[in-house]
């Protein structure tokens, strides 16, 4: 990464990264900061307190909602998408949600390393057998069905480094470009 980019990072760059996700139905990061009016209704309505509003350190993204997936994941109750007044969180259904994609770190996952028969991610997945299925007792993610809710990340017993588990949600869809 270029040094210029590293300097510009705090103010203008998106806080969305691995396990740092927007709530369900979020528009791409391209327009998120402009469309969200920071009213905090999604934060207040979330019954699991998954959604956290960012503060001044997030630059232009201050006040926008973020989910720290490994701490409190999204339980896909879809209450936030019904109260967003600006359409920043589009009113979509559970299975349409694409907050990101769960990716298994096969060198860290104890099942893939052959050290244990853990299948926590498979057990906690709300779309079990579709989003995560077992292949020879090892978990495999299907990107066609994974909603990126982060329940697997939250449940995973292996912490590789702070904020990083053996299965992580990568917000692939947040990087889409918007066409006017």
């Amino acid at each position: 990464m270029a040094p210029v980019d590293a300097v510009a990072r705090p103010f203008f760059s998106s806080p969305v990264s691995m396990n740092r996700l927007r709530p369900p139905g979020a528009v791409p990061e391209d327009v998120f900061a402009g469309k969200c009016i920071r009213c905090g209704r999604c934060v207040e309505v979330c019954p699991y307190h998954s959604i956290v509003p960012l503060d001044a350190r997030a630059g232009v993204y201050a006040g926008t909602p973020l989910i720290f997936a490994e701490q409190i994941p999204c339980y896909l109750c879809m209450k936030c998408v019904q109260v967003c007044p600006t359409g920043t969180l589009r009113n979509i259904t559970q299975d349409e949600t694409r907050m990101g994609l769960a990716v298994i770190e096969k060198y860290s996952c104890i099942t893939w390393r052959g050290e244990a028969l853990c299948r926590t991610c498979y057990n906690v997945c709300p779309f079990k057998e579709k989003a995560i299925h077992l292949d020879q007792l090892r978990p495999v993610v299907d990107e066609r069905h994974c909603t990126g809710c982060g329940l697997c990340t939250h449940g995973c017993p292996i912490t590789v480094s702070p904020g990083k588990k053996a299965i992580n949600v990568k917000p692939l869809f947040a990087q889409a470009r918007v066409k006017w």
């Binding site: 528009v27 009016i37 905090g40 007044p85 600006t86 920043t88």
Partner: peptide, 28 residues
Amino acid sequence: QGWYQSLGIGKLWFVSPLEGIESILVSK
């Protein structure tokens, strides 16, 4: 839910006009 940026009372929603105009102007 909310406060005086956007207040939702049941299905009755209030959005502060300035906030709404900014959201429309920026996101187009």
